[in-house]
Protein backbone atom coordinates (compact mmCIF):
# COMPACT_ATOMS: atom_id res chain seq x y z
CA UNK A 1 0.00 0.00 0.00
CA UNK A 2 1.45 3.38 -1.07
CA UNK A 3 1.36 6.41 1.13
CA UNK A 4 -0.48 9.45 -0.11
CA UNK A 5 2.65 11.51 -0.88
CA UNK A 6 4.14 8.55 -2.64
CA UNK A 7 1.02 8.25 -4.78
CA UNK A 8 1.22 11.94 -5.67
CA UNK A 9 4.81 11.54 -6.77
CA UNK A 10 3.89 8.61 -8.97
CA UNK A 11 1.04 10.53 -10.56
CA UNK A 12 3.34 13.53 -11.26
CA UNK A 13 5.78 11.18 -12.89
CA UNK A 14 2.98 9.71 -14.94
CA UNK A 15 1.84 13.20 -16.01
CA UNK A 16 5.41 14.02 -17.06
CA UNK A 17 5.50 10.88 -19.16
CA UNK A 18 2.13 11.74 -20.73
CA UNK A 19 3.19 15.22 -21.80
CA UNK A 20 6.42 13.79 -23.24
CA UNK A 21 4.42 11.26 -25.26
CA UNK A 22 2.15 14.03 -26.43
CA UNK A 23 5.17 16.04 -27.59
CA UNK A 24 6.53 13.06 -29.50
CA UNK A 25 3.14 12.44 -31.08
CA UNK A 26 2.80 16.07 -32.24
CA UNK A 27 6.34 16.07 -33.59
CA UNK A 28 5.62 12.90 -35.52
CA UNK A 29 2.52 14.43 -37.06
CA UNK A 30 4.43 17.51 -38.15
CA UNK A 31 7.23 15.38 -39.52
CA UNK A 32 4.85 13.15 -41.44
CA UNK A 33 3.05 16.21 -42.81
CA UNK A 34 6.36 17.60 -44.05
CA UNK A 35 7.29 14.29 -45.59
CA UNK A 36 3.95 13.94 -47.35
CA UNK A 37 4.21 17.49 -48.66
CA UNK A 38 7.76 16.86 -49.82
CA UNK A 39 6.83 13.63 -51.56
CA UNK A 40 4.01 15.29 -53.53
CA UNK A 41 1.96 12.15 -53.12
CA UNK A 42 -1.38 13.75 -52.33
CA UNK A 43 -3.35 15.70 -54.92
CA UNK A 44 -5.05 17.82 -52.32
CA UNK A 45 -1.83 19.44 -51.22
CA UNK A 46 -0.79 22.48 -53.21
CA UNK A 47 2.76 22.59 -54.40
CA UNK A 48 4.35 25.52 -56.17
CA UNK A 49 5.33 23.61 -59.28
CA UNK A 50 1.75 22.51 -59.97
CA UNK A 51 -0.53 25.38 -59.05
CA UNK A 52 -4.32 25.19 -59.27
CA UNK A 53 -4.61 26.80 -62.69
CA UNK A 54 -4.54 25.50 -66.23
CA UNK A 55 -1.52 25.69 -68.47
CA UNK A 56 -2.38 26.46 -72.11
CA UNK A 57 -4.29 23.50 -73.58
CA UNK A 58 -4.07 21.53 -70.33
CA UNK A 59 -6.64 18.76 -70.04
CA UNK A 60 -9.71 19.30 -67.87
CA UNK A 61 -12.45 16.99 -66.71
CA UNK A 62 -14.88 19.87 -66.45
CA UNK A 63 -15.85 20.11 -70.11
CA UNK A 64 -17.14 17.21 -72.16
CA UNK A 65 -14.34 17.31 -74.73
CA UNK A 66 -11.64 17.17 -72.08
CA UNK A 67 -10.11 20.55 -72.86
CA UNK A 68 -9.68 23.42 -70.45
CA UNK A 69 -9.46 25.85 -73.38
CA UNK A 70 -12.77 26.87 -74.90
CA UNK A 71 -13.29 26.99 -78.66
CA UNK A 72 -13.81 30.33 -80.31
CA UNK A 73 -17.53 30.96 -80.76
CA UNK A 74 -18.42 31.16 -84.42
CA UNK A 75 -18.62 34.64 -85.92
CA UNK A 76 -16.31 35.99 -83.23
CA UNK A 77 -14.26 38.90 -84.51
CA UNK A 78 -11.02 40.30 -83.21
CA UNK A 79 -11.42 43.08 -80.66
CA UNK A 80 -11.65 46.45 -82.44
CA UNK A 81 -11.77 44.76 -85.84
CA UNK A 82 -13.69 47.24 -87.99
CA UNK A 83 -16.38 45.13 -89.62
CA UNK A 84 -16.96 47.83 -92.17
CA UNK A 85 -13.48 47.34 -93.62
CA UNK A 86 -14.48 44.47 -95.89
CA UNK A 87 -11.49 45.07 -98.14
CA UNK A 88 -8.99 44.29 -95.39
CA UNK A 89 -10.87 41.46 -93.66
CA UNK A 90 -12.94 39.90 -96.43
CA UNK A 91 -11.16 40.88 -99.61
CA UNK A 92 -14.34 42.35 -101.06
CA UNK A 93 -15.51 45.81 -102.08
CA UNK A 94 -19.29 46.29 -102.30
CA UNK A 95 -19.73 42.53 -102.44
CA UNK A 96 -17.32 42.11 -105.34
CA UNK A 97 -13.89 40.48 -105.08
CA UNK A 98 -11.32 43.20 -104.54
CA UNK A 99 -8.92 44.10 -107.31
CA UNK A 100 -6.63 46.24 -105.15
CA UNK A 101 -4.65 45.71 -101.97
CA UNK A 102 -5.93 47.38 -98.77
CA UNK A 103 -2.52 48.89 -98.04
CA UNK A 104 0.61 49.88 -99.95
CA UNK A 105 2.90 46.99 -100.86
CA UNK A 106 6.34 48.00 -99.67
CA UNK A 107 9.56 46.02 -99.68
CA UNK A 108 8.95 45.08 -96.03
CA UNK A 109 5.48 43.74 -96.88
CA UNK A 110 6.94 41.72 -99.75
CA UNK A 111 9.64 40.23 -97.50
CA UNK A 112 7.00 39.35 -94.94
CA UNK A 113 4.84 37.82 -97.65
CA UNK A 114 7.73 35.70 -98.92
CA UNK A 115 8.47 34.46 -95.41
CA UNK A 116 4.83 33.62 -94.65
CA UNK A 117 4.33 32.04 -98.06
CA UNK A 118 7.27 29.72 -97.48
CA UNK A 119 5.84 28.71 -94.09
CA UNK A 120 2.19 28.14 -94.91
CA UNK A 121 1.84 27.82 -98.68
CA UNK A 122 5.06 26.32 -100.03
CA UNK A 123 4.49 22.84 -98.56
CA UNK A 124 1.67 22.33 -101.08
CA UNK A 125 2.03 25.02 -103.75
CA UNK A 126 5.82 24.83 -103.90
CA UNK A 127 8.37 27.57 -103.40
CA UNK A 128 7.84 28.55 -107.05
CA UNK A 129 4.04 28.54 -106.84
CA UNK A 130 3.69 25.85 -109.48
CA UNK A 131 1.65 23.50 -107.28
CA UNK A 132 4.50 21.03 -106.93
CA UNK A 133 5.28 21.33 -103.23
CA UNK A 134 6.42 18.40 -101.14
CA UNK A 135 2.87 17.55 -100.06
CA UNK A 136 1.80 17.41 -103.69
CA UNK A 137 4.77 15.18 -104.43
CA UNK A 138 3.57 12.84 -101.67
CA UNK A 139 0.29 12.42 -103.51
CA UNK A 140 -2.01 15.26 -102.43
CA UNK A 141 -3.87 16.13 -105.61
CA UNK A 142 -3.65 18.81 -106.89
CA UNK A 143 -2.62 22.15 -105.38
CA UNK A 144 -3.22 25.08 -107.72
CA UNK A 145 -0.51 26.30 -110.05
CA UNK A 146 -0.39 30.08 -109.67
CA UNK A 147 0.99 30.44 -113.17
CA UNK A 148 -2.15 29.19 -114.86
CA UNK A 149 -4.03 31.71 -116.97
CA UNK A 150 -7.05 31.44 -114.67
CA UNK A 151 -5.10 32.47 -111.57
CA UNK A 152 -3.00 35.07 -113.33
CA UNK A 153 -6.23 36.76 -114.33
CA UNK A 154 -7.93 36.29 -110.95
CA UNK A 155 -8.35 39.40 -108.80
CA UNK A 156 -6.40 39.60 -105.54
CA UNK A 157 -9.70 39.32 -103.68
CA UNK A 158 -10.06 35.78 -105.02
CA UNK A 159 -6.78 34.71 -103.40
CA UNK A 160 -7.82 36.36 -100.16
CA UNK A 161 -11.13 34.54 -100.21
CA UNK A 162 -9.45 31.18 -100.86
CA UNK A 163 -6.84 31.64 -98.13
CA UNK A 164 -9.49 32.76 -95.66
CA UNK A 165 -12.21 30.21 -96.37
CA UNK A 166 -10.53 27.43 -98.33
CA UNK A 167 -11.17 26.13 -101.83
CA UNK A 168 -11.77 22.56 -102.97
CA UNK A 169 -9.51 20.33 -100.91
CA UNK A 170 -7.62 23.30 -99.54
CA UNK A 171 -8.71 24.02 -95.96
CA UNK A 172 -9.25 27.46 -94.49
CA UNK A 173 -6.18 29.29 -93.25
CA UNK A 174 -8.19 32.20 -91.86
CA UNK A 175 -7.61 31.14 -88.25
CA UNK A 176 -3.91 30.58 -88.79
CA UNK A 177 -2.74 33.57 -90.84
CA UNK A 178 -3.75 37.09 -89.75
CA UNK A 179 -5.45 39.25 -92.41
CA UNK A 180 -2.46 41.53 -93.05
CA UNK A 181 -0.20 38.52 -93.51
CA UNK A 182 -2.68 37.03 -95.96
CA UNK A 183 -2.45 40.20 -98.04
CA UNK A 184 1.35 40.13 -97.82
CA UNK A 185 1.29 36.53 -99.05
CA UNK A 186 -0.93 37.52 -101.97
CA UNK A 187 1.50 40.29 -102.89
CA UNK A 188 4.25 37.68 -102.98
CA UNK A 189 2.10 35.35 -105.08
CA UNK A 190 1.71 38.20 -107.56
CA UNK A 191 5.50 38.57 -107.56
CA UNK A 192 5.87 34.82 -108.20
CA UNK A 193 3.43 35.05 -111.09
CA UNK A 194 5.41 37.91 -112.54
CA UNK A 195 8.68 36.04 -112.08
CA UNK A 196 7.58 33.19 -114.34
CA UNK A 197 6.45 35.49 -117.14
CA UNK A 198 9.15 38.12 -117.02
CA UNK A 199 11.71 38.90 -119.68
CA UNK A 200 15.18 40.28 -119.25
CA UNK A 201 13.80 43.71 -120.15
CA UNK A 202 11.63 43.66 -117.01
CA UNK A 203 14.70 43.51 -114.79
CA UNK A 204 15.91 46.94 -113.67
CA UNK A 205 19.35 47.73 -115.18
CA UNK A 206 21.02 47.95 -111.77
CA UNK A 207 19.77 44.46 -110.86
CA UNK A 208 20.76 42.73 -114.07
CA UNK A 209 24.27 41.87 -112.92
CA UNK A 210 22.71 39.75 -110.13
CA UNK A 211 21.33 37.37 -112.73
CA UNK A 212 24.78 36.17 -113.76
CA UNK A 213 26.06 35.63 -117.24
CA UNK A 214 23.52 33.13 -118.46
CA UNK A 215 21.22 34.62 -121.04
CA UNK A 216 17.76 33.20 -121.63
Amino acid sequence: MLRRDQRRATSDEQRGKDSFSFFILCSSFVLVAFLVAACNSSGSLQIMGEQPRYDPYEASNFYANGMSARPVISDTVTFMQPLTNTLLYEGTVDGELATTFPFAITDAVMQRGQQRYNIYCAPCHGALGNGQGVVAQRGFCCPANFHSDRLRAAPVGHFFDVVTYGFGRMPSYGQVIPARDRWAIIAYVRALQLSQHATLDDVPPDQKNKLGNTTP
Binding site: Y57, Y120, V135, F140, R169, V176
Partner: peptide
Protein backbone atom coordinates in the same frame (compact mmCIF):
# COMPACT_ATOMS: atom_id res chain seq x y z
CA UNK B 1 8.56 25.13 -91.11
CA UNK B 2 8.10 25.01 -87.31
CA UNK B 3 5.53 27.78 -87.57
CA UNK B 4 3.23 25.85 -89.88
CA UNK B 5 2.00 24.02 -86.76
CA UNK B 6 3.36 26.10 -83.86
CA UNK B 7 1.62 29.19 -85.15
CA UNK B 8 1.75 31.42 -82.09
CA UNK B 9 5.43 31.07 -81.25
CA UNK B 10 6.28 34.56 -82.52
CA UNK B 11 3.45 36.41 -80.82
CA UNK B 12 2.61 34.50 -77.66
CA UNK B 13 4.16 32.96 -74.59
CA UNK B 14 2.91 29.59 -75.79
CA UNK B 15 4.26 28.23 -79.05
CA UNK B 16 0.90 26.68 -79.90
CA UNK B 17 -0.13 23.09 -80.34
CA UNK B 18 -1.78 22.44 -83.69
CA UNK B 19 -5.45 21.46 -83.67
CA UNK B 20 -6.36 18.21 -85.40
CA UNK B 21 -7.47 20.33 -88.38
CA UNK B 22 -3.80 21.13 -89.02
CA UNK B 23 -3.00 17.42 -89.29
CA UNK B 24 -5.97 16.99 -91.60
CA UNK B 25 -4.73 19.77 -93.90
CA UNK B 26 -2.53 17.12 -95.46
CA UNK B 27 -3.74 13.85 -93.97
CA UNK B 28 -7.21 14.23 -95.38
CA UNK B 29 -5.46 12.90 -98.48
CA UNK B 30 -2.17 11.41 -97.34
Amino acid sequence: DCRYCHTSVEVSSFAGMPPTETCMNCHSQL
